[in-house]
Amino acid sequence: MSTVRVPPVLRAAVGGVRELSVPGSTVAEVLAALYAAHPEVRAQLVSESGELHRFVNIYVNDEDVRLHEWLETPVGDTDTLLILPAMAGGATASR
């Protein structure tokens, strides 16, 4: 089971936790297992055409999977898969 780190915007969709243990030996398998356990996550990460949104980055340990084998990038038991959507927050309370 690899560790999946959940970004703040997705925590509500996984019951408020920051990390989950998820089975799977590739990024695609880990994400599929995550979606099966928490269907709401899929709605936020995947577009209508079934592709991972372009504003969501996936890192295995500290490497961006876009620069590796994308969803086929292998994930080992001791690896951490980090989901990282872009965040805008900064200056003011609201626009």
Binding site: F55, P85, A86, A93, S94
Partner: peptide, 20 residues
Amino acid sequence: CVFPEPPPPDLAPSCGEAGV
């Protein structure tokens, strides 16, 4: 290079909505 595209507004909560 890091974030080629922004999330759509409904998936991009601001600090005003989400807190900080």
